[in-house]
């Protein structure tokens, strides 16, 4: 398998909950971002190691509703190992991302293109049939339908035309900004078409650069857009490393249960300078020895 395409959605009946049409991905790698995004809301995760890539798009609404009237969503996962001829052109995945990201700037005329395309490729009765089928849906069938959905998407200018180059390796920008979205799609194009290593993420539980510290990686440049962020424009992400919450003051308290009290007590810094300290080290034994001799001799002399 060169390219794997997976689609997750649900059926109308209560018992037909979210599941992949056919076999799902081998590993839910997107869960690594569970602390940074709510998957039921618009999310895009694109990762490339320079050879292969994987992409995850979720929160895509369908026109379908479940039994209690809740909007049904789609999740798309595309994984390519970089070996052989791709079954889905990387440019097609860029188109999917471009379409989904372009809808994150708020409601506007013509939005919902991805919803219409996917609903067209996955009609309600066929989705119900696929979810209820005792045998898994053939991967080729799912792939064919996704490719058909991409073809139904509105054509666009090449991804990079007019897209600004942020000029930073790691950056965060607000998803509500059109230039930021264009820069994001440009980065996705670089990752998938030019096969550059890195990541491009649309995350919805991120508010500031500090929230992304744990995702920084020297070997994988990071471009992030997020709704309702505290940043005005594309903002360079810090180079600090460490887990989220790093930077907190280390506890000054000693271990509570240490039996060696001298090792656990906080010792104030010595204020004596080093040369003086050395002098003391030499003189003190001499003075003490002299004192001891006097102390021993004094009773004898006093007799």
């Amino acid at each position: 398998m060169v390219t794997a395409v997976h689609v997750q959605t649900r059926g109308r009946p209560r018992h037909r909950d979210y599941g992949f049409l056919g076999a799902g991905p081998e590993r839910p790698w997107w869960r690594e971002y569970a602390g940074h995004t709510a998957f039921e809301r618009p999310t895009v995760l694109v990762e490339s190691d320079g050879a292969g890539y994987r992409a995850y798009l979720s929160g895509i609404p369908s026109a379908r509703r479940d039994a209690v009237g809740t909007v049904i969503r789609y999740t798309l996962v595309v994984e390519e190992d970089g070996v052989g001829v791709p079954a889905v052109e990387p440019a097609a995945v860029v188109t999917l991302v471009r379409c989904w990201v372009s809808e994150q700037g708020g409601p506007r005329p013509g939005s919902g293109g991805l919803t219409r395309a996917l609903d067209g490729a996955f009609p309600e009765d066929e989705v119900e049939r696929m979810l209820a089928a005792p045998e898994p849906v053939a991967p080729a069938d799912v792939r064919r339908r996704v490719v058909a959905a991409v073809r139904a998407l509105p054509a666009a200018d090449p991804a990079r035309s007019g897209a600004p180059d942020v000029g930073e390796r790691d950056w965060l920008a607000d998803a509500g900004s059109a230039p930021a979205r264009a820069a994001f799609v440009r980065r996705v194009d670089e990752l998938l078409v030019d096969r550059r290593p890195g990541r491009a993420l649309l995350l919805n539980l991120v508010g500031s650069p500090a929230d992304l510290t744990a995702l920084l990686d020297d070997t994988s440049p990071l471009a992030v857009i997020a709704p309702d962020t505290a940043v005005a424009g594309p903002t360079r992400l810090g180079r600090e490393r460490g887990p989220v919450g790093a930077g907190k003051a280390p506890s000054a308290a000693p271990p509570r249960t240490s039996p060696v009290i001298s090792a656990t007590l906080p010792m104030p810094a010595r204020t004596t300078s080093r040369p003086v300290s050395r002098l003391w080290t030499v003189l003190t034994p001499l003075v003490l020895a002299l004192a001891a001799v006097i102390a021993l001799l004094l009773p004898l002399l006093s007799r």
Binding site: F39, V68, V71, R73
Partner: peptide
């Protein structure tokens, strides 16, 4: 029903 349920 309009309030989307949790997916994860």
């Amino acid at each position: 029903g309009a309030l989307g349920g949790s997916q994860d």
